[in-house]
Design a protein around this nucleic acid. Structure first.
Lengths: 83, 83
DNA sequence: GTACTAAGATTGTCTTAGCCC
DNA sequence: GGGCTAAGACAATCTTAGTAC
């Protein structure tokens, strides 16, 4: 997962790290720590967790795995066109 | 990573599991085992390995992380349009 | 030759318990 | 409140060695 994509999508959704973590099913005692580790590139979530985050943030899961910024933007467009 | 996406892209590229593994920098003594484990969903590669595989297979890395088949096809189209 | 798998070795993430602003 | 991080606990992957077709 690309750490910056997660942070960008979370702040766009106006959620705190803890709120996002709890919404995807992480225990509230560890949600803050884990999301922070993901956004700072210390650790990577497993694919299922990434998919749940994408669902909450209303983005396609593959957006979180796109390195190129322009291609990432194009994917978001494609996603909203199809909704 | 979605195991079937990797297998589909590898067979489309007409590579054996071992050949793909070696091309992405995995030692030839373990390449066969690891790619097999990835394609059968036993283990998941780390993101860097997935990106190197995508590069060899000429697909966007995010294609390997797209669950929906139709959206995956659309991403491939988008990728080839932009090349 | 090609693909698959069990199990110990290895490397990763997760939780806990704090910290700073 | 919101975000970040060190370190031990824990769970994942990787390598080895071998099987099956």
């Amino acid at each position: 997962m690309v750490p910056n994509r997660l942070r960008a999508a979370r702040t766009a959704a106006k959620l705190t790290q803890e709120k996002l973590g709890v919404l995807v099913g992480i225990d509230e005692s560890t949600a803050r720590s884990r999301i922070s580790q993901y956004e700072n590139g210390i650790y990577r979530p497993d694919f299922d967790t990434a998919c749940r985050m994408a669902r909450i943030l209303d983005i396609p899961e593959c957006y979180l795995f796109t390195v190129d910024d322009d291609f990432a933007a194009a994917i978001l467009e494609l996603y909203h066109q199809r909704k």
